[in-house]
Amino acid sequence: MSNAIPETSLLTLADTCLLWGHRLSEWCGHGPALEEDIALTNTALDVIGQARALLQLVAHRRTPPTTEDALAYFRDPHEFRNLSLAELANGDYAQTILRSFLLAAWFVPVWEALEKGADRQVAAIATNASKEARMQLRHAHDWVVRFGDGTPESRRRIEAAVASLWPRCGELLDVEIDGTARTARRDAWLSIVTTTFTKATMTMPPMGAASTPNSSHPDRVTLLTEMQSLARQHPNAVW
């Protein structure tokens, strides 16, 4: 399978989806309004579904083959390859929404490139995922605009979210994903983000050099400790 996208890239995508979906799932039952609770859970379900499809593919391609659950529950934190943006604790609703916006704006061009790619198994996943990512992007975009152009408090909160998440965006632009062109991806992301920030009457901070994420990934460790706790208590169990 010479057209196969290397596992490292697939795991970056899968782990980003999985940890982001997990963070979103923490909101379930606690959203700011029932409609939003449901909408946020839609995104969580979409991205967890994407993670599963990719992890199943990775598991299947390994020799010997493994399972999606072995990859999700029995890898240690340092083996996860997600973008660090995905693992961060939720913060308030502005930060949750902004993270979704920044990630969806990244995923839309990624899926669109992979959809046309030579790895047809990945392309099949990307075809579905790109539709879902566009919907996620629209939902998150709408809220970023509402927060930027809403009340003084929402403005203060979305600006604080930008300040705290912006340093993570360098990684997002620099990461290599086989089957996608980095420059095109970067231009697409910048153009989406600029448009939304303009509508939200906000200025986009300058794109600094990528800051190196804390290599001990404390939020990733906390997340995985919780997520993997039950599965690891019963390592031989089938659920």
């Binding site: 999985l18 997990h22 799932s25 923490e26 379930c28 039952g29 606690h30 029932l34 609770d37 449901i38 859970t41 839609n42 969580a44 379900l45 967890i48 579904g49 993670a51 599963r52 992890l55 999606e68 659950d69 999700a72 529950y73 919780e226 997520m227 706790s229 039950l230 599965a231 019963h234 169990a237 659920w239």
Partner: peptide, 27 residues
């Protein structure tokens, strides 16, 4: 919802998340 983050397999996690979402829809 208390068990969504600790569901012991990805399939169970997805099913539980969808279920709790359905309850919100019923509301």
């Amino acid at each position: 919802g208390n068990w969504i983050t600790r569901a012991p397999s990805l399939k169970r996690k997805e099913i539980l998340l969808a279920k709790v979402q359905d309850e919100g829809g019923h509301g």
